[in-house]
Design a protein around this nucleic acid. Structure first.
Lengths: 153, 153
DNA sequence: TTCCCTGCAAACGGTTTGCACCCCA
DNA sequence: TGGGGTGCAAACCGTTTGCAGGGAA
């Protein structure tokens, strides 16, 4: 489901991943990256809440700086959410987002057929004077049953 | 180009539009709505800058409150921009957005063929447990020549 | 040992709020 | 004239910044 991200959350593999991106593997970076992988498009604040259980002395400022560093080095992306706050995403592959107005969750929507459809479309239609960095479909809605997951069929 | 919005900026027609949406037509609302129609997905701040020439005593708080009111009554929508701030849009028709990282502009991308392609796709693929409110394609990029417009060919 | 990273706290900037006054319907 | 709208200023809150001390390579 979540592609292009490691699914081995062991300390050593997280460390290796940081090293691969030329980042000094501090304890803080390791737990922040782990939280980023486990949580679903978290805000800095929600990574903070998750992490202070395991690293009580961590500061929110460090989370912001660290996420910023990860974005710059290509380990994560920063996306704006419909609620106005910024979220972080370790899924670096091309994919789309579903936003729920009720829960404020962002969920991935990955569909190869859809990607191809859009890619195909923009092979014909060109946008002049624009260097495209990213095209993504944004689906905004409301979960009907808040306790159930959203799923694609 | 910009569909579903009036293109008569006369005082009387702006007043009529507000009345149509059951809003008391104060001078502030009229000039705010005019600025919203003329500017390209403005922030509250940039409406403020534009307006203080014609209504010097207007307050930024009023702009926020007024835009909020317009969103509730269906005259406008509030969208989050990639830069993290909120923008307002009087174009109520289904359309897509291009965001430029350099100028922070949001530009409309309207293409009937694309709308149909997406609509068609979601007639086949269903998302369970979600009431879809809005589907839009978000194109992020950078203007190549900052002085030239982005155009579709 | 050397930088870079972290923690802390203050500052920042966009947005919201409370309240007295104002003005459209 | 009544009730909602406006202006002002303070508060709010997510995010950034500066700086002194700390820890990975």
């Amino acid at each position: 489901l979540r592609t292009n991200i490691i699914n081995d959350y062991s300390y050593t593999s997280l460390k290796a991943k940081l090293a691969e991106f030329k980042l000094k593997a501090t304890h803080q970076r390791i737990v922040i990256y782990e939280a980023l992988l486990k949580l679903n498009h978290p805000s800095a604040e929600s990574i903070f809440d998750q992490i202070k259980i395991v690293a009580p002395s961590i500061s929110l400022g460090t989370i912001y700086k660290t996420l910023d560093t990860m974005v710059i080095s290509g380990l994560a992306v920063k996306v704006s959410s419909e609620d106005g706050n910024m979220r972080y995403d370790a899924n670096m592959g091309s994919h789309n987002h579903i936003y729920c107005f009720n829960t404020k969750e962002i969920m991935d929507y990955e569909d190869e057929e859809l990607n191809q459809l859009i890619e195909e479309f923009f092979r014909k239609k060109h946008i002049e004077n624009l260097k495209i960095k990213d095209i993504r479909l944004q689906i905004n809605g409301e979960k009907i049953d808040l306790n159930k997951e959203v799923s694609i069929k």
